[in-house]
């Protein structure tokens, strides 16, 4: 048989296999519920004028105890609540500047963040947050509540935080804490 034809066939097969793999990967993910989201543009007017920096407080776990610790940071306020919330999460993903532990596995990205009218923030992380997670209840607790506390503490309209992974609802990060309902912040686990 012709060599060329063989090559073409092989390439075709490869293409199809890739297609199948892409297809299989796309299937199966659950889309987040389509509640009415406040779009980024709607609340622009709120904080447009301020140009000077504001202080946000992030919550990180520490090597010394099982509590979360505050870390202040100056940022230029964003034009909308959703953007501000995204900024807080990206600051959290960047890790501590004061030597606290990083609560979120390296390589994790923030995919999307919405805030609903009811004050529920939907935070959608890439799948590294689950796949690379050091399983264990304490580790899961510090990951979840560093996100939940950091968001609710700085943005008062956020009453609850729903964590999504890869665009969908997941049951847990590693078999412990329930991700199928939204979290309220817990400040008992924050160092005084």
């Amino acid at each position: 048989m012709d060599k060329k034809k063989l090559v073409i066939l092989a390439a075709l097969l490869l293409f199809l296999v890739v297609l199948v793999i892409i297809y299989l990967n796309l299937g199966g993910t659950i889309k987040p519920r389509p509640t009415q989201f406040i779009s980024s543009s709607q609340d622009e007017s709120e904080s447009e004028k301020q140009n000077e920096s504001t202080t946000i407080i992030l919550f990180f776990p520490s090597e010394h105890d099982s509590l979360l610790h505050r870390e202040e940071r100056e940022i230029i306020p964003e034009s909308s609540l959703a953007l501000h919330a995204k900024r807080i999460i990206s600051e959290l993903l960047n890790g501590s500047q004061r030597g606290f532990l990083s609560p979120i596995p390296p390589g994790t990205r923030l995919r999307e963040l919405y805030i609903t009218k009811e004050g529920v923030a939907y935070v959608d992380f890439s799948r590294e947050i689950m796949d690379k997670h050091l399983s264990g209840s304490s580790a899961e607790m510090s990951t979840i509540y560093s996100v939940v506390n950091s968001l609710s503490y700085n943005i008062k309209t956020i009453k609850k935080v729903f964590i999504l992974i890869d665009g969908g609802e997941k049951k847990t990060l590693g078999g412990h804490i329930n991700l199928t309902s939204p979290f309220q912040p817990i400040y008992d686990i924050v160092a005084k």
Binding site: H64, S138, A139, S142, T180
Partner: peptide, 28 residues
């Protein structure tokens, strides 16, 4: 029965958990 895991190398000791009232997944 579980065994804990933490980002802190020094984390030690047993812990017992029960469900928090406001955090209960009432629906389920």
């Amino acid at each position: 029965i579980h065994v804990n895991g933490s980002y802190r190398k020094g984390a030690a000791g047993p812990e017992t958990y029960f469900l928090s009232k406001d955090a209960t997944d009432e629906e389920s």
